[in-house]
């Protein structure tokens, strides 16, 4: 069967409005289905988080959207273009910052910007103006002539972002842009992202930092090729969390862990997850109120002093893991 997809049935109003959309997007590599009927729409000026475990189909989806791979089935559109048949036209309006960086270490910061400017076809005056704008946006004043190899992680990130948007794209794909970067730089980076979004740029970003995922307006979870959940972080915490999180503070976390894990294995209490967080323990149970007391008793019986045992708002990471477990249980 030849690879490809049926021709798009003429632009629909919704398609024009949404800068990125995918409908039943599927990609198969031989017997392996990397992306399985994934559908979503991203709204203009949205910061959309694209999350999932490694090998779940995150990067494949992005590559299809970027026109780097052909989908096996499904419809998709970026800025009204069909990435398959109008690849170059689309790519001219889209920015991409890849995980492995797109910077040349042997060039200075400004030389990298100029290079990408020229690659994207900026005219000379345009380039001069734009390169100044980017240096300012990235806070690289005084560092323009530093060799990229000598810039620290945080600065490299900002420079890479600058190079990705040198041509003022209306859609930007960021693939793990802050991996390994210190918290201060990460936050400033997200400030940049937000500033861009405010000006109307649509941004799709993948990240392994769950706290960054919280910063996205909407988030999509992909797991084993399928879209497991889509929504705002709050929506997901309310609807997709299987169970509730109790946090236990105890001066003897190791012993407490042992007791809890035994209970989990024995199934004497329905403990979905028992994880150690330094000196605190997070336990996921079906209902916080229902199981708070039994847990307290369990620990008291073992003579483990408990400082605090209370319900906390789940983090996106808790939701993420719960969703993954749900998918696994369904199979």
């Amino acid at each position: 069967m030849a690879e490809g997809h049926p021709p798009a049935p003429g632009p629909v109003e919704a398609d024009r409005a949404d800068p990125i959309f995918a409908e039943n997007l599927t990609k198969r590599f031989g017997n392996f289905t990397a992306v399985d009927r994934v559908s979503f729409r991203i709204h203009p000026g949205e910061v959309f988080g694209w999350l999932g475990p490694n090998g779940a189909g995150k990067t494949t989806t992005i590559r299809i959207l970027l026109g780097l791979i052909r989908p096996t089935e499904g419809r998709l559109g970026v800025l009204g273009f069909d990435p398959v048949s109008q690849t170059k036209a689309m790519q001219a309006q889209v920015g991409y910052m890849s995980q492995l960086f797109t910077l040349y270490n042997d060039l200075t910061a400004i030389e990298n910007i100029r290079f990408y400017g020229r690659v994207y076809g900026l005219g000379r005056e345009q380039l001069v103006r734009r390169q100044q704008e980017i240096i300012q946006m990235a806070g690289l004043e005084g560092r323009e002539d530093t060799l990229t190899a000598n810039l620290s992680g945080g600065w490299k990130q900002r420079l890479a972002l600058g190079c990705a948007i040198v041509h003022n794209p209306r859609v930007v794909f960021l693939d793990e842009p802050t991996a390994g970067v210190d918290p201060i730089s990460r936050r400033e980076f997200w400030g940049l992202i937000y500033a861009m979004a405010k000006k109307g740029t649509t941004i799709l970003v993948t990240t392994h930092y769950m706290d960054e995922a919280e910063l996205c307006q909407r988030v999509g979870f992909i797991n084993q090729g399928r879209l497991a959940a889509v929504g705002t972080p709050d929506e997901l915490k309310q609807t997709r969390m299987r169970g509730q999180v109790l946090e236990i503070e105890t001066p003897e976390p190791d012993r407490a862990m042992r007791i809890l894990k035994e209970a989990q294995a024995r199934k004497s209490l329905p403990l979905e997850e028992v994880a150690l967080y330094g000196a605190q323990i997070h336990v996921v149970v079906p209902g916080a109120e229902e199981y708070r007391h039994p847990l307290q008793e369990l620990l008291a019986d073992a003579n483990i002093p408990v400082g605090n045992l209370e319900w906390i708002v789940p983090t996106l990471e808790d939701v993420f893991i719960s969703t993954i477990r749900e998918t696994a249980d369904e199979e």
């Binding site: 475990p53 390994g180 392994h208 994880a275 150690l276 990471e317 993420f320 893991i321």
Partner: peptide, 23 residues
Amino acid sequence: EPTLGVDPVSRREFWNLLGNLRA
């Protein structure tokens, strides 16, 4: 930096392993 670039699920599993070792 043992968990750099690893997704949250694997990171948590890794830290669970570490927790077990410690306990």
